[in-house]
Design a binder for these strands. Sequence first.
RNA 1: CGGGGUGUAGCGCAGCCUGGUAGCGUAACUCGUUUGGGACGAGGAGGUCGGAGGUUCAAAUCCUCUCACCCCGACCA
Length: 573
Amino acid sequence: MRLSKASWQTYKEIPKEAEIPSHQLLLKAGMIHKSGSGIYQYLPFALRVIQKIEKIVREEMNAIYSQEITMSMVTPGELWKESGRWDLMENLMVQFHDRGGKDLCLSPTNEESVTDIFRRMTKSYKQLPVSFYQINTKFRDEIRPRFGLMRGREFIMKDAYTFHADRDSLNIGYDEMYQAYSNIFTRMGLEFAIVEADAGNMGTSESKTHEFQVIAETGEDDIVYTDGNYAANIEKAATTRVGLEFSKDQEMSEVETPNMKTIKDVCEFLGSKQYQSLKSLVYTAVWPDREEHYLVMLLGDDELNELKLKNYIGCNFLLMTKEETMRDLGLVKGFIGPTNCSENLKVIYDKAIDLDSSYIVGANKADMHLKGFMPSKNCNSEKIQVDLRSAQVGDLAPNGEKVKIKKGIEVGHIFQLGDKYTKAMKAQVLNKEGKKISPLMGCYGIGVTRTMAAAIEQNHDELGMIWPMPIAPYQVYFAMIGKSEETKNLGLDIYKELIAEGIEVLFDDRGLGPGQMFKDADLLGLPIRLTLGERDYKEDGKLEIKLRKSGESQKVSTNDLVSTIKSKIKELL
RNA sequence: CGGGGUGUAGCGCAGCCUGGUAGCGUAACUCGUUUGGGACGAGGAGGUCGGAGGUUCAAAUCCUCUCACCCCGACCA
């Protein structure tokens, strides 16, 4: 593309609404425009990135014999009522009706549609497995869209679905998809981690699920990993603490702790380590038809992972228990503990707690704590022990290695769904014995537009974006300095030659000052910058090639230009 | 939905407290000089101050309502 023929506008200042680099830079470089909250227009250079990402995705999907389809963005309400998600996802879906009053929605995902396609065309186990994918626009009416393309309401997603006769086949399909996803993000030139994830309400306990996380400081997810082969989302990571020393066989006694409401205060006062005390948290678990109250016990300096608690209890959502309810349960705020409280309160201990050791806990009396509290001896209630704590740096992973934590952006997620949708929607096939079975499903997503944003989060500096070669909008930014006819003709000739050689060139023939062109080039972040400078060229007949990422630069004569650029591109691909 | 904040020229902001009929920077336009890191000079253009209502001789400014957007939380590719 020649910039003199193109419509492109960069900005010196960025809209204040943008807070993270990808959002700021995409706006500053004139690649996207906001159309509404969480809704964006993709301008030419952004679209080229999207198309490159899609191309890689398509190639890898096709390579594992997944077939591309396009499902309608507007889907009838009936399908969602069959699966039961019409009401369940009411808040996430934009629902509306047509002239005749029929319910419709904008698809936030497509399990229902694909299951409908599947059941119409598949009647026998012999036709399995089946694998479909599509790349199209999704709309989710997120409660809070944010960070530009990172969490838009309208976004481009690749979603794939597989159907299998049995779990072995599902596992095979899943593993293929896992490998394809690895290939996809590797080919894009991104640093990523594959982590064990929480299945949420998508799957069952035996369902495998992994997330593909692009590593970036601005990521919203915490990844717990080791130098070896362990990596998990902190939501899921079950690690063990090391270096704990508990005291045993102390006599339990009350101690006065006036106005000491924090664990830190109490432990300092009593000369103990914080982990030698127990933290007591009170939660109310809510179901549509009932509530239950839980007292969660953790080591004093551990943090609760609420998701683990919610998964264990199996409720719809968790709330911090209201103060008045706490009073009814016999709890004294600031001095809460597992003794002297109501039987309506279920006590759960974190796994890191040794039930046969002694701890400091709240006494459920104002200004009083207990010393030497031993759960196995001093607490009457049932001793439930579950992994509830959030993993911390220095813990041991299941493989025995020490874990570290880094931030990631979830760009891909693969799930084993099981028969949830095939059962609900009566998508059945006959097996060898002639019996009807509900096939097992897997679903697999990649956020295409989010991947574009994540690539920027991972690869940028104070000047702008730094695109990995495989997904850069163009490979080469060709800046032409000088306005003489001679230079213009030479520049255009070189541009045409590069194009003819199959090199993707953005030719800056706008005739701006060098500073302006270089600023735009740095901002847009194409991997290679080629400069034709009138003054220098007259001197030595050479052009400059500079790499955006390393800053490395060299002078090249016109004869060596094509071969040098080609080898640079090859190096960077 | 709960909490916090912002709406004035394309973008970034000042003016509001203490009402008097809108300004700065930047971008965009024209002419000229510049051409290896957002250059300089001159000239011109652009806003019913988010919207509605109210108070007042007079409202960007005060009052009421409303809408949009952003940030923190639950959610997710």
